[in-house]
Every structure is written in structure tokens, then in C-alpha cells.
């Protein structure tokens, strides 16, 4: 076995070794160097609520109680947050025994409305999901508080 062949084998082996290391790095590249931030086109942004429910587009103007003891009542939306509950400081005083005094709050950041549970006893539900943090909601999505169901309307 000539000296030259052995040297070539040696260098070739080191090259393969590093090729392996670099391919492993390239597989996990996004984990090490972070994901590339590409501004996604607006339509492409996933809107899970929009997919299943198709709420009418536009700006909501009122919060409507659509089921429960206070059915039919509504409150116009402004910039101020709206408090729902049995207490006297609530925007709609719900006569529902299963609603807490200060139950949930609807608030906006100027473009999007959020619903937030204020530590109520029986919880605030979006579908079958009990909410634990402020969740953005769109028009026509029913939110359940105790026996009451409210939604944003145009």
C-alpha cells in the first residue's frame, strides 16, 4: 500500500466525517440558526376560526346576548373593554346564577377583539375549549358564560 494511497484514504475519511457532521447540521439548521422570518401574505395566514365558521367580515359593532336569561340584550362596542358578570359594574348585568360577579372581559387592541376569563367559577368556553388566556374572537363566534351565550355582531 503506497504512502500516497494511504494519505488519500486518510483525507477522504476526514472529508466524509465532516460531510456527515455538516449534513446533520443542515437537517437541524432551523433549530440552530432560527427560522427565516418571511412575511406571509395576508390571505395565507391561517385563521382557524375563519375556516370552520366563515364569520362575516367587517368590524363588529355590538356584543349581543343570544341565549340565556338576558337573551336579546346587547351593548355597543367602543374602545373601552366590556365587563360581563352579575356585578353592578358589568356592562350587561347578567341574571344568571351560574355567572360570576366579574366573569369575563371583552377588550380590543384597535383591530381585534379578545375575550378573557376573569377567574370565574364556572369558566368561559369557546366551543368545547375552556379559555385560560385572552383569545382573539371574530364576529359570530358564540362564547359561553354559565348558561349565557354571547357573540360579537356587526
Amino acid at each position: 500500500m503506497s504512502e500516497l494511497t494511504l494519505t488519500l484514504i486518510k483525507l477522504g475519511f476526514l472529508a466524509v466525517l465532516w460531510l456527515f457532521v455538516l449534513s446533520a447540521v443542515s437537517v437541524i439548521r432551523s433549530d440552530i440558526f432560527g427560522t427565516k422570518a418571511t412575511p406571509a401574505p395576508r390571505q395565507a395566514r391561517p385563521k382557524p376560526a375563519a375556516k370552520s365558521r366563515k364569520p362575516s367580515r367587517g368590524v363588529p359593532t355590538k356584543l349581543q346576548v343570544i341565549d340565556g336569561p338576558n337573551m336579546g340584550q346587547s351593548v355597543p362596542l367602543g374602545d373601552a373593554p366590556i365587563l360581563l358578570g352579575r356585578g353592578t359594574d358589568a356592562a350587561i348585568r347578567l341574571d344568571d346564577d351560574y355567572v360570576s360577579t366579574r366573569h369575563a372581559r371583552f377588550a380590543t387592541n384597535g383591530e381585534q377583539w379578545f375575550v378573557e376569563d376573569l377567574g370565574s367559577t364556572n369558566g368561559t368556553y369557546l366551543g368545547s375549549q375552556r379559555i385560560t388566556s385572552p383569545i382573539p374572537i371574530g364576529i359570530g363566534i358564540p362564547v359561553r358564560l354559565g348558561k349565557t351565550i354571547v357573540e360579537l355582531q356587526k
Binding site: P48, A49, S52, R53, L126, G127, S128, Q129, P142, R144
Partner: peptide, 8 residues
């Protein structure tokens, strides 16, 4: 997957 349909 979380389905969003009503499970009242």
C-alpha cells in the same frame, strides 16, 4: 386537533 363545532 381541536374541533371548533359546538359541544354544548
Amino acid at each position: 386537533e381541536i374541533s371548533t363545532f359546538d359541544r354544548d
